[in-house]
Amino acid sequence: MTAAKPKSKPTSPRAASVKDKASPARKSAPSPGSQSAQTPLLEWIAAGVGAALILAVLSVIVLDIARAHDAPPDLVVRSKGSERVANGYLLHIEIKNRGDQPAAQVDVEGRLGHGAAAQTASVTFDDVPGGSVRSGGLLFKSDPRGGAVELSAKGFTDP
């Protein structure tokens, strides 16, 4: 396996076979006896389903590109009710990104009460893509139904 024959062309045996296949098999006329002369109905159905699905995928992406999609993440947090748990109270929250760009590592803080008596709880959402909703919970010592909970998104990274 030394570099003995630099001028030998590795393609030569292949070149012959290229000519072979170029002849009858490639020609369009379907031979009468060939089993593929008639396309099975199922093949048309499968291809039709595939075509519809790929067109749907492409149009969702193209429409999203066409809609100017440069609005930065716009994060809205809201409360989804609370319940008693072993460790205090659980406040269910939901975060929606009304912007177009996705946000990652979104820090959300909830503040219950005012002044020195205020309790805070926080959580980080891994990802909140544009237009999508994620949910989670905050834990408080006292019942969040008693006083107004102030919910806010504190920051995020670009994914």
Binding site: E43, A46, A47, G50, L53
Partner: peptide, 23 residues
Amino acid sequence: FEPTFRLKDEILDMLAALGIGLL
């Protein structure tokens, strides 16, 4: 999927395969 070299069949096969992948 099929023993052909005809463009129509290649396209049908490709679409069917895409359908399978997406589904």
